[in-house]
Design a binder for these strands. Sequence first.
DNA 1: ACCGCTATCGTTAGCAC
DNA 2: GGTGCTAACGATAGCGG
Lengths: 222, 222
Amino acid sequence: MARNKLPLKKIDNPYRRNITYSKRKAGIIKKATELSVLCGADVGVLMFSPNGRLTSFASNGRIEDIFLRYLDQANVPEVGPVEKEEALQKKLCELDPKLLEKQEKMRSYNPDLVKINSVHDANVYHQFLMDAIRNIQQLKMEILLGEHMELQKSESIQVPPAATRNGHLTAEGLVDSNGNRNPPEDEHQPKEARLPVGPHLSLEYLRTQKHWDLQSGGQSKA
Amino acid sequence: MARNKLPLKKIDNPYRRNITYSKRKAGIIKKATELSVLCGADVGVLMFSPNGRLTSFASNGRIEDIFLRYLDQANVPEVGPVEKEEALQKKLCELDPKLLEKQEKMRSYNPDLVKINSVHDANVYHQFLMDAIRNIQQLKMEILLGEHMELQKSESIQVPPAATRNGHLTAEGLVDSNGNRNPPEDEHQPKEARLPVGPHLSLEYLRTQKHWDLQSGGQSKA
DNA sequence: ACCGCTATCGTTAGCAC
DNA sequence: GGTGCTAACGATAGCGG
């Protein structure tokens, strides 16, 4: 874009490609940040580098929340009152009389019921929760995408088997859902078994580690 | 950004704010597109306008897929050294004989025990899981930081109160298993009950409806 | 493999349709 | 409410540290 006029095709040279990826990744995130600041918009970005490394960004809170909000709104045909949901709920109850029972069961999942006192416990439980989350996400997606009938269960949505990985959660790999640590490293070329995790990019991190001046207009906002 | 030097604060004038939002939204999506083309990266973007209207973009396929891929990778802790944990686990077992029992209890939390059949259920359960995850994260942090003794419980890590939101996660509507339609309309000012749906932006749409030359280097891409 | 530099290209605020 | 224009501003490719 600068000295030469970019050819808008996949960059052949892997090195230069990674350079470009890093720079433009930062650029997009900056743009997203500016958009969120200027317009008060919530923005979420997910990027997978050519090497498969993930970078996520959320202008506000977690990317999960934004996606959830997406799930909510993306499928809202209209400014829906709650009636519709309740109607659907009723239908489902008719279809599955055991629903209420199951709901009750679910509600019994009280956090206090489970006490964890070891890291291992925490890991196992965390892993369990993660899998459960994934199941929920997929389920929700299936419900939302496939109406309320469980027709073509999965097929298009296919989630790779949750398959409780024997990978235990180490402290190092832990990312707190709130305070995110963001290693300032970029893609480049993962030799072999480089873990494909990309950190979540929080506004805090960007302001702290990068030198973006997100307060340039720093005055009282309306 | 052009005639004046933008003040990087929330634009007061709602009209101009929407104008800016529209333009910059397009800009970000174009950037995302370029990134995906130049670097072969998968990019997904979610944006909520100040008026709450959603715009989603996915360079490849659906944003759902990208998010699913995110869920896969974001929670992969690491191929961690398990020994350390096991040692710690042992110590903890000695300290707390009831640990095993608790573990057993925890393991009984089988995902299959809970069946969710409505979006609302999924939302509630999801929220619960998210909160549980956060609790776990914090607990683990505490354990790890304070070694195996529960000394200075929390203090430095402080996770904001999970505070189960009274479910804004209402899913009034269901979506038809369909492709993406892309109304070429933007935000502007939804009078009142303007439906907050923003279309999914596919590359096809952008190339067709906008005049972006995404083939400027037009050759076979790897 | 991240940073700063700078010429150049791309984006976009303010207008006018 | 979208488009097209143009000047000014911002992003960034190619380098060197």
